[in-house]
Design a protein around this nucleic acid. Structure first.
Lengths: 336, 336
DNA sequence: GTGAAAGCGCTAACAC
DNA sequence: GTGTTAGCGCTTTCAC
């Protein structure tokens, strides 16, 4: 590995001059030297050493991407297809911004902050951490942190997410407009994201109350086995609805197959809608009518938000990304 | 951030002694000092600085994970659900081995080796690079490299993959044993992995030749649109077979829905088998009979292989991981 | 048992 | 315009 010192020796100048040329501080370097040094740099394929840079500049150009992976989560985030897309977009943008991505599955807060400290990571992007964990981590590490898909009442941590209320509203409106009256919204919790989606549904239904639209809600167990039992117990209730609007495509898909196995025709007997527009949504039958989010954009905005935080600039992008209803086959539509 | 120097001052000893205690070189450190230093270390939450470590030790503890992401690939590797699982397992094992994971989407060879050089990465794990690219990269960087799912005639690059021949054989055998005679194997190429799977199918069919089993093969276009047209053109051929054995679950799924849309019953009219046991396989109807690979294990072995290369030890693990047939509903079975 | 000092590759303040 | 030098935090050699 060729060092600045080597280049300097070959060019017959001092390391300082070489460093100046490398960084474009060429105001007080003679044209002759600039050219000579640049040629030698090129010829020797000079690559700066990050270790030395980190030590001298006291910064790492590293952004830590943390995925929370605790026991008992409903689905493993790390193995969700959503994750590979977001990781993809994250790295793309991080690199574009001249940073590098250090990736870690965060098993504990302790581990996370140690990682951040050891590497002097300049910022953190987290996925799948709870509000409390994000808050705690951000305070402990004392570096900028942006979470993805995490909402807080107090809004203390920067977050990039979706227009969930609008998504719930748009789907609710679509369903009502298609003549569905008895709408059931199903999620596994009633905080943050899912709560907002439910509020959106409610608003849409209220606006269509005159036409007889009404919405109910059920909270399902997070645990897969328990949820299966729950579906069994709720079969009659589910069958009695016009449409089941699930807070994720995953749940929608699960329910579709559960119902199909029970001889229920989707959307003939009951319509089903999802949320996310995951790759699963399009690959199954019936294809799922759902709410689309732009995952690539989400990752990109998260990085941009973080960079703004790092550089103490104002973020002018969107913290809540727009969503849109994607009409496919799992919701019965009004004949034209 | 507290430094060794600070600890030393507080303990009233020299940095050397502190360093010795940190690294367990306590043979010639007095018991009193060991205790005192350890207590101060603990109290101040001393975290070593990687930048200084890297510079002093001339190593980085970094493993670069590169995903090739070029235009015109059949499917984007980075957004494949398989990828998040492998990334997951990779990071788990890398961290377990006391390394850190630098993640990058490799757009070019140039970019990849620059990344490796800048960070003095100790080893590289690649996904989705061609044999030539892996070879070139490994020579250019002069550091250990392990590829995943990439095969070479010359075997110059370390690779972790599957027992593809055995997988093709096992599925072929299962199909023949279920009484299927006219078997069609479908892939998008005939090199490496897919070629081996095909050889496996052939062997199985030969063994069951007496019972009338026979196998044909078709190469499908990689491009999605072209493949769609190809399926249309091949409809009659496909319908005439007993079973279609696709080289990936993705293709199997695509074909199942294509055929279902044409009114073909799966597996009533035609059976379909896949390969991978991707999450899609189980989530659709009919659930796909496929060949399962252990992705977590694959990532783990790749890291272990790399660590062996780095430490110049012999690798005693498996370069070809075992696979197994998973019987579900997309292949018609003999009545018991 | 303990510590002083050099060196890893680079930056930046400052002197010339 | 150009060069000298100290310093970033740590390891390691060698002297005491």
């Amino acid at each position: 590995m060729v060092r600045i010192k080597d280049i300097a020796k070959e060019a017959g100048v001092s390391p300082t001059t070489v460093s100046n040329v490398i960084h474009g501080n060429t105001k007080k370097v003679s044209k002759a030297n600039i050219d000579k040094i640049q040629k030698i740099l090129e010829k020797n394929q000079y690559i700066p050493s990050m270790s030395a840079l980190m030590l001298a500049e006291n910064r790492s150009r590293l952004i830590g991407v943390l995925i929370g992976e605790r026991e008992g989560k409903r689905r493993s985030i790390a193995s969700d297809p959503f994750t590979s897309v977001i990781l993809n977009s994250l790295e793309l943008e991080i690199y574009r911004q001249n940073y590098y991505m250090l990736f870690h599955l965060a098993n504990s807060q302790e581990e996370s902050w140690k990682l951040a400290a050891t590497w002097k990571v300049e910022g953190l992007i987290t996925l799948g951490l709870s509000s409390e964990e994000n808050l705690e981590l951000s305070e402990k590490c004392q570096i900028p942190l942006v979470s993805i898909d995490n909402y807080y009442g107090e809004k203390k941590v920067a977050n990039i997410g979706l227009q969930d209320f609008e998504g719930g509203y748009a789907m609710g409106k679509f369903l009502a407009e298609q003549g569905h009256k008895n709408i059931l919204f199903l999620a596994d919790n009633d905080v943050g994201v899912d709560h907002e989606r439910w509020l959106g549904v409610q608003k849409a239904v209220e606006e269509h109350g005159a036409e007889g639209a009404a919405a109910g809600r059920r909270i399902m167990p997070e645990n897969r086995e328990l949820r299966k039992a729950w579906l069994e117990d709720s079969l009659e209730d589910l069958k009695s609805r016009d449409v089941l609007f699930f807070a994720s495509d995953f749940y929608a898909l699960e329910a579709i197959h559960f119902l199909q196995d029970k001889g229920v025709d989707i959307p003939g007997d009951v319509s089903v809608a999802g949320f996310d527009d995951s790759p699963y949504a399009e690959i199954c039958r019936p294809e799922i009518t759902t709410v689309r989010q732009n995952i690539m954009k989400k990752g990109q905005e998260a990085v941009k938000r973080l960079i703004c935080l790092i550089q103490e600039e104002e973020f002018k992008g969107q913290e809540r990304l727009p969503v849109e209803v994607v009409v496919r086959d799992s919701v019965k539509q009004k004949p034209l």
